[in-house]
């Protein structure tokens, strides 16, 4: 564990807590894309399939449970909570998740670190699922970014949520750079490229978020 990865995990945790805070306290999910939240639930479910079979550390297991629990409870709130669901604007949240999930699944089958299409063993299945979750996480924010472009007024909590979500992966990139220079054989092109793509998708959001912070004006994304 290094400071970049710890900061990345804490930033990721904070983004989830900001969203849960918004939904749980003001009972509103205005401006939040349910499609993105559902994609994140799929990301965590496919990434942490081995949560009970491969134990790493108490921290690792606790964080996995928090991410799984929070992502599924956010989806539950937005779908079924009688007050929260009323503030979900489904007409603005029109991105079709399958056009993201299918290419990621195909890509995970074609391009993964195990290349050799060995016997279809459980470990290969887990690895394909893990790679799928990596690709899916890179694009999962797209429905949310599309929705932000449409909903003119972005409230502070939503802006902070998206910012923290983008910042966590940027910190992970620093973590990978650090591990590359401090550990031997630490080369993971697939993870690095998908992490980079993920962070670059936030580039314009970061720009407008910084501008709104610098000029102390409301965050507005150009149409």
């Amino acid at each position: 564990m290094n400071i970049f990865r710890l900061a990345g995990d804490m930033t990721h945790l904070l983004s989830v807590l900001v969203l849960l805070l918004k939904i749980h306290t003001i009972k509103s999910c205005a401006g939040i894309s349910l499609k993105t939240q559902e994609l994140y639930a799929v990301v965590f479910a496919t990434r942490y399939l081995d949560i009970f079979t491969s134990y790493i550390s108490p921290y690792n297991t606790m964080m996995k449970l928090i991410f799984l629990g929070s992502s599924f409870s956010i989806v539950w709130y937005m779908r079924y909570h009688k007050i929260v669901r009323r503030s979900y604007d489904k007409d603005q949240d029109t991105f079709r998740p399958y056009i993201l999930m299918l290419p990621c699944l195909i890509l995970a089958l074609l391009i993964n670190e195990k290349f050799t299409f060995k016997e279809i063993s459980t470990s290969f299945f887990l690895f394909v699922m893990w790679t799928f979750s990596l690709y899916l996480e890179a694009v999962a924010i797209l429905p949310q970014l599309v929705m932000l472009q449409r909903t003119r007024n972005i409230d502070n909590l939503t802006g902070q949520y998206v910012f923290l979500l983008g910042a966590y992966r940027a910190l992970y990139i620093l973590n990978w750079i650090y591990r590359y220079f401090t550990e031997e054989h630490f080369v993971h092109w697939i993870t690095w490229i998908s992490g980079l793509v993920q962070t670059l998708l936030y580039a314009d959001f970061f720009y407008y978020y910084f501008q709104s912070w610098k000029n102390n004006v409301k965050l507005q994304l150009p149409a």
Binding site: S54, N60, Y172, E183, E184, H185, F186, H188
Partner: peptide, 10 residues
């Protein structure tokens, strides 16, 4: 974490 692999990452 064992050297070089990503298993310990979230």
């Amino acid at each position: 974490s064992s050297n070089g692999d990503l298993k310990d990452e979230l």
